[in-house]
Nucleic acid binder design. Sequence first.
DNA 1: ATAAACCCTGTAGGCACTACAGGGTCAAGA
DNA 2: TCTTGACCCTGTAGTGCCTACAGGGTTTAT
Lengths: 133, 133
Amino acid sequence: MAFTIGEIGKATRTNIETVRYYERIGLLARPNRGANNYRSYGQDALDRLSFIRRSRDLGFSLEQVRALLGLSDDRTHDCAEVDRISKAHLVEVERKIEDLTVLGRELRAVIDSCDGGIVAHCRIIEALAPPER
Amino acid sequence: MAFTIGEIGKATRTNIETVRYYERIGLLARPNRGANNYRSYGQDALDRLSFIRRSRDLGFSLEQVRALLGLSDDRTHDCAEVDRISKAHLVEVERKIEDLTVLGRELRAVIDSCDGGIVAHCRIIEALAPPER
DNA sequence: ATAAACCCTGTAGGCACTACAGGGTCAAGA
DNA sequence: TCTTGACCCTGTAGTGCCTACAGGGTTTAT
Ligand SMILES: [Zn+2]
Ligand SMILES: [Zn+2]
Ligand SMILES: [Zn+2]
Ligand SMILES: [Zn+2]
């Protein structure tokens, strides 16, 4: 029931430097230490780290994760705030997709216009350069 | 024909701190200075900064911009490398869109599953928490 | 004369890690 | 038993790309 940092790292596919980083910023509690000063984690810490990983995989920021963790501890509270955070994040993700889609379209148009040849005639360079004066 | 940092900043919609940053990392040449030690830019510097801005707007990294600038100076060289960099960047953009699309789908599914109520029954929290043991 | 708006240098902060340097500890094989 | 390698520790600095001061000087307008 006691895990080393390497074990919880492997179990959650999290770099151990990252685990220590989460501890440093207060996202994970400071664990007990063994006689050798090694960190010793219990199941609860492993669960918490899993929660963090999963949230990160869904693109939540660490501050959002911190808020979600806090909210998830308050089991009898209603979940409106959880929903709000999640929806706000989804909106952000959707906006990023739109931005990248526009950008990709423009980039593709620029690239397609190049027929090869020398830089002096390259349409890509031309497209990047400032307009004629 | 001589511009202050504020003027080229405004003309290219670039923060003046950013202009100084570009100078520091060697993306922009160190400009001449006036008697008051103010930076004094010519049209060439303004053009170069415009090129950087436009490339950044298309999502190129500063290292890619640096390479593109170097290539664009060699007017008689062929543009294959320019194309390669641009296509590599487009591939990256497309991969990001795909990743975000998958993520957005998953996030939406998680959010849609929540019917409100208390945190103990919230499906979002449940989806984030580690699987039952 | 004074205030606002501009400019300077240098440094530190932000995000979310990642990579050392320079040590200590432990398990397994020769 | 010795040694190799895998693991662990702390603390600091680096990444990309800015952004934000602090603590000054200068210019312009009123
Ligand atoms: Zn509550
Ligand atoms: Zn070309
Ligand atoms: Zn050449
Ligand atoms: Zn809910």
